[in-house]
Computed example of a mutant assay.
Amino acid sequence: MAALLCAVSSVHPAPPAAADSIRDHQWALSAFDAEATEKLSSGRGVTVAVVDTGVDGTHPDLTGNVLPGKSFLAGGGRADRETDSVHGTAMASLIAGHGHGPGNSAGIKGLAPGAKILPLRVNVDGNLQFGSVKGVAEAIRYAAEHGASVINLSLASPSSARVLEESVRYARQKGAVVVAGAGNDGTDTPNYPASLPGVVSVGAVDVSGKIWAKSNYGSNTLVAAPGVDNYSAGLNHQYQTESGTSDATAYVSAAAALLRAKFPHLTAGQIANRLVKTAKLPDSVAGGKLPDKHYGYGFIRPYRALAEDIPAGARNGPLPGSAPSASPEDAGSAAGPGQETTTVKDGSVFVVRGVVGAAGIGLLGALAVGVIRRRRPVVPPPPVSGRQPPGPDFRQ
Rank of each mutant, 00 (worst) to 15 (best):
Y297C: 05
G298M: 01
G298E: 02
F299Q: 02
F299M: 10
F299V: 05
R301F: 03
P302V: 10
Y303M: 04
Y303F: 15
L306G: 03
A307Q: 09
E308S: 13
E308N: 06
D309T: 11
D309P: 00
D309R: 06
D309L: 02
D309E: 12
I310H: 01
A312L: 00
A312I: 00
G313F: 03
A314Q: 09
A314R: 10
R315D: 13
R315H: 06
N316E: 15
N316W: 09
L319F: 08
P320F: 07
P320E: 15
P320G: 13
S322P: 00
S322L: 06
S322F: 04
P324R: 15
P324N: 14
A326D: 09
A326I: 05
S327H: 06
E329W: 08
D330T: 07
D330I: 03
A331H: 11
G332I: 13
G332S: 14
S333E: 05
S333T: 09
S333V: 10
A334Y: 08
A334W: 08
A334G: 12
A334R: 14
A335S: 15
P337H: 11
G338V: 10
T341C: 07
T341Q: 08
T341H: 13
T341I: 12
T341E: 07
T342F: 06
T342V: 15
T342L: 12
T343A: 14
T343I: 14
V344S: 07
V344I: 09
K345S: 13
K345N: 14
D346I: 01
V349I: 15
V351D: 05
V351C: 06
V352I: 12
G354E: 09
G354V: 06
G354F: 03
V355A: 11
G357C: 02
G357H: 01
A359E: 08
A359D: 14
G362H: 09
L363I: 05
G365F: 01
A366M: 07
A366G: 13
A368C: 09
A368T: 15
V369G: 10
V369Y: 09
G370W: 00
V371I: 11
V371E: 12
R373G: 13
R373H: 07
R373Y: 05
R374G: 05
R375C: 06
R376M: 10
R376C: 03
P377W: 07
